[in-house]
Design a protein around this nucleic acid. Sequence first.
RNA 1: GCGGAUGUGGUGAAAUUGGUAGACACGCCAGACUUAGGAUCUGGUGCCGAGAGGUGUGCGGGUUCGAGUCCCUCCAUCCGCACCA
Length: 957
Amino acid sequence: MDYDFRAIENKWRKFWAENKTFKVSEDTSKPKFYVLDMFPYPSGAGLHVGHPLGYIASDIYSRYKRLQGFNVLHPMGYDSFGLPAEQYAIQTGQHPAITTEQNIARYRDQLDKIGFSFDWDREVRTSAPEYYKWTQWIFIQLFNSWFNPKSNKAEHIDSLVAIFEKEGSNGVNLDQLTGDIEKDMIPFTANEWKNYNEKKKLEILMNFRLAYLGESYVNWCSALGTVLANDEVVNGVSERGGHPVERKLMKQWSMRITAFAQRLLDGLNEIDWSESIKETQRNWIGRSEGCSIKFKVKSEELRVESDVNIESIINENSPLSALHSPLEIEVFTTRPDTVFGVSFVTLAPEHDLVAKITTPEQKAEVEAYVEKAKNRSERERQADVNTISGVFTGSYVEHPFTKLPIPIWVGDYVLVGYGTGAVMAVPGHDERDFKFAKHFGIPIKQVIVPTNDSHDMDKAAWVEKEGTIINSDFLNGLSVKQAISKSIEEITKNGFGKGRINYRLRDAVFGRQRYWGEPIPIFYKDETPYALQESELPLTLPEVDKYLPTEDGEPPLARANNWKYQNANEYELSTMPGWAGSSWYFLRYLDPKNTSEFVSKDKVDYWGNVDLYIGGSEHATGHLLYARFWTKFLFDRGFIPFDEPFKKMINQGMILGRSSFVYLVIGENKFVSYSLKDNLVCAPIHVDISLVDNDKLDIEGFKKWRPEYTNAEFICEEDGTYICGYEVEKMSKSKYNVQTPDELVEKFGADTLRMYEMFLGPLEQTKPWDTKGINGVFNFLRKLWRLFHDANGNVAISEDQPTKEALKTLHKTIKKMTDDLDRFSFNTGVSNFMICVNELTDQKCNNKQILQELIIMLSPYTPHISEELWVKLGNASGTISTAKFPVFNEEFLVESAFDYPVSFNGKMRFKVNLSLSLNPKEIEELVLALEESHKWLEGKAPKKVIIVPGKIVNVVI
RNA sequence: GCGGAUGUGGUGAAAUUGGUAGACACGCCAGACUUAGGAUCUGGUGCCGAGAGGUGUGCGGGUUCGAGUCCCUCCAUCCGCACCA
């Protein structure tokens, strides 16, 4: 009987499903191991061969761990809220839930064909109310929490209320409560707090909640009709769809991820992730150490009078420090050593103080500039980095040390979202400031002597953190490094500012003006947001007539009829972003059916965090950062016992498509073969890869492909074939280079596909898909099959004692397989099997002991054929997944002799077989006595002979 | 500009600690088998050379008895981030 993969795979797929072979539960007698894949968004296009790459690797690893006796949790689910289903709904009116359901069915069908060992009883879908009930629940926990900088962790908001009741807001020393995150709070005493009404209290608490409603500049995408988080904006356009994005001041639900910036940074040192992802996260968090410095605004007439109503300023939602008179501009700098080189101060166009400090003479010009800057999209602004623009406000600040007046400018090179939205410009030692000063003719003051003599201060700023300080009063003569600490010391001592750590990370905007997402469990009473009670969850997504915003520009949820909290109060109308559900799904797998908790304590204690996470690196700044944030939060609040979700992560590389081309002769309906194309003027045209085999075009098929090619002519190679050119590109429909796993499973079987995907190359590497090589793996499985059968196709297994040779082959393979799996080297694993089967075939080995061990090792890669052969060896059905992985025994590899490579001056010349019991001196004598050696010595005496027993001999002449 | 990764045959790649470069496979070449099965078997296949031999892991240097592997300089490609003060 031949290797009938179709029958075998159908049989075992059915067997696993019916017997729930991969269902797991908590079992304290075994060590646990949690292997997780990044769950897919079920798109309408289905899977191509690139998608299952990571799933195959994680499945192999899961099966390997199971064979080693671990209790392996290996679940799968769907990230099923998202934009494409909603866009489709807008176009067709079909409810996104239906589209999602259909896509999931297709995904499931495709996944099932590949033979994964998922425990499908644990499937989760983020769009299911039973799931998002708990996403909403976590949101409420975040809403009811604040970050206590003193304990450095999230706490229930009640502990903050207790502080307020006892000591108010600690006077002016707000940092102790806010950790420098929020600064626009008016100080109050305990008594004042007690006398505030509920609305006022809630308003103050909103400044501390980890999920909060606040006004801030957001990325507004009008084409999508929603706001986007920073990581959803790429190169100034939306990640999905590539629509323009502008900055807009809006009231939005946000997540105070900035409170966790330092812990998110520190945690990276404790997890086993690729350096590049960790660096990307460090970069995104963007910690920089420096100093804040306050500059007093000089113009007398602008000074805020002492009897001014401070609250009126607060209520303008100033994100900046404008609280105390006289007006001050606070800047953040990493170079306080250059403070004496400040020749102007620049404000971001959106900075609150711009309007307040501009003089009447400059008003028109400044307003025009600000207006223009605000209307520029992110993309325009980024594309235009080299154009210098700015405008003078007419006002001055006072230098804190010299007391000299310094002009205040507005410039869009200063970003409102970073630092304080204001910079002290030191043109002598900052490139942008230099350009700005040159452009506007502002004086440039040198305060550092460059270490490089040839540096010309007239041509460029000296920006290196090296050199000696000059023109700087008490800093003169110090090195830059010394001057940084000395200046911070002086600035702090004089109350001009203080040392400060700044992060690039912004709070994450959480509301989306979309339909297909989790409703935010909030209602409004007296314009104040209140969270729903746990017992009122889930707040299910209401039905709407259309999935578009209303005519008044309200989100789609505003279309829902009679959708009110207790029939009285308005619900929040925005929904959660795509990353909400995926920030905690790994926890729900532990206890997917629990209706009273998001996960039970017992289960989360047993399973713990993810031991191995496999997925793409494209989530480096989105999902992976948010999931870490929520995990830290849930840990702080005592819901889970760990504060990093994913201990080890591997990022599989992208699989690129291999596009094929035909060459159309310009002006004719004639195609020229690859090697002849340079003789003619022709244009390459993508041709469907299903019409090409080994670069040879199926000419008849091609003629039928498109009506216009029916009568096409072909200039072929000498042998009459038409050879196509190729290029490696991303897989896409428009390039006709998409390879689906389904076709390959049909043609070669799932085992071949699984093994071939691993054989392509290292998991983490980007690699081109090329179907050519799949035959090699297919042939390997047939060769394996033949090991178990005689020439007539009957099972032929010997029960004899295995030969020494066979045992050596087996144990060599056991050792290599264990090593390779432990270091996730799946591609070399495949070649180990090939070598092993080649050797056993040469040895004509059909010994049961040997073959049984071999297929156990093979079963993680090719589970179907392994199950089948396992039964043929006389074992009970379906148990190979719980067999025991073979153990390496070194005894079988012991050798008595070794083929020594003999080198002369490092060049290998010949080999000689010598006993391993010889000592170096004996080896040297034997080698030098050889006739071959005399030839290479050319009569000279060797200067030295290096001998590494069991490795090499090197003769130095 | 900053950061990360990668450069090895015609192709995908291997070489885990500095010790025989190119395992394993694809493709190709030659042959066998006997019909057509994405068969199977045998031999060959880095480059130059008829051969002896020479040469060879992006370039150039260095350390070493010995370097794909370690160090320095440079180049190329890919991926992040980017007016971040």
